[in-house]
Simulated scan of single mutants.
Amino acid sequence: MNQAPIWSHRFRMGDLARGPVNLRLEADEATRTALARHLGLRKIKSLTADVRVRPWLDGAEIGGRFEAVVEQESGISLEIFDQTVEGPLEVRLVPAGSPNAPDPEVEIELDPDAPDPPEILQGDVIDLAAYVVEHLAVELDPFPRLPGETFDYQSPQDDDSPFAV
């Protein structure tokens, strides 16, 4: 069963016939609330993205930047704080059956400096908002803490242990 996405902005590949397209996406409050629940955040106060879609080989290239302000709880002090999360959007897509698609039979050598291989686009519609959410999820700190806050663990000095001898 396919679940409807929380935030969606559909872009048709045919719209690239006239050249690159620039868009600004902004999630409304209801969408941000649902996304915060989905991503395990207290709150998403803002989420915007400047997206550029342009033709690339026989597919498309998505570029741009996103920015969000999220409310998180420090894993050290349990204080609530706002954190700005931002990053680039970089995705390349090719249609299914494209000669430019990665061959699933060939083992790819991972190079952290090389661009990711293109994703396979099923159909002729790209959900740009889904890529924004994906990139936001990757940039979130799984162990948030206030700026400058450090974890200073000191083991207990308990001499009452039977193994202290």
Rank of each mutant, 00 (worst) to 15 (best):
M1H: 12
N2E: 10
Q3T: 15
Q3N: 10
W7N: 00
S8M: 05
S8V: 00
S8C: 09
S8E: 12
H9F: 10
H9Q: 15
R10G: 01
R10L: 15
F11P: 07
R12M: 01
L16R: 07
L16E: 08
L16H: 12
R18D: 07
G19P: 02
G19C: 05
P20C: 02
N22Q: 13
N22C: 05
L23V: 01
L23Y: 00
R24M: 03
R24N: 01
R24L: 00
D28L: 06
E29Q: 08
A30P: 02
A30F: 01
T31G: 02
T31F: 00
R32F: 01
R32C: 14
T33L: 00
T33A: 00
A36E: 04
A36H: 07
A36C: 06
R37D: 13
R37G: 06
R37C: 00
R37T: 14
R37I: 05
G40L: 12
K43F: 11
K43V: 05
K45L: 13
S46R: 04
T48F: 02
A49S: 08
A49L: 05
V51E: 00
R52Q: 00
V53G: 01
P55M: 10
W56N: 03
L57H: 13
E61W: 14
G64Q: 09
R65D: 04
E67F: 07
E67N: 06
A68G: 07
A68T: 04
E71T: 14
E73T: 06
I76G: 09
I76W: 07
S77Y: 11
I80W: 10
D82H: 13
D82V: 04
T84F: 01
V85N: 01
V85S: 04
E86R: 11
E86V: 04
G87T: 09
R92H: 10
V94M: 02
P95A: 09
A96H: 07
A96C: 04
P99I: 13
P102G: 06
P102Y: 14
P102N: 10
P102S: 11
D103Y: 14
D103L: 13
P104N: 12
E105R: 15
E105S: 12
E107K: 15
E109S: 08
E109K: 15
L110V: 15
P112T: 12
D113Y: 06
D113N: 13
A114S: 10
A114M: 11
P115Q: 07
P115S: 09
P115R: 07
D116K: 04
D116Q: 14
P117L: 13
E119M: 08
I120N: 03
I120L: 08
L121K: 10
Q122H: 14
Q122K: 13
Q122A: 14
G123E: 09
D124P: 03
D124T: 15
I126Q: 07
I126C: 05
D127E: 08
L128H: 10
L128G: 02
A130D: 15
H135L: 05
H135D: 11
H135S: 15
L136D: 02
L136I: 07
L136S: 02
A137Y: 04
E139K: 13
L140K: 03
F143A: 00
F143T: 01
F143M: 11
P144H: 09
R145S: 14
R145P: 04
R145I: 05
R145F: 08
T150K: 15
T150M: 12
F151K: 09
D152C: 05
D152P: 04
D152G: 05
S155T: 13
D158M: 05
S161E: 10
S161F: 06
S161L: 14
F163H: 07
A164W: 09
A164M: 04
V165N: 14
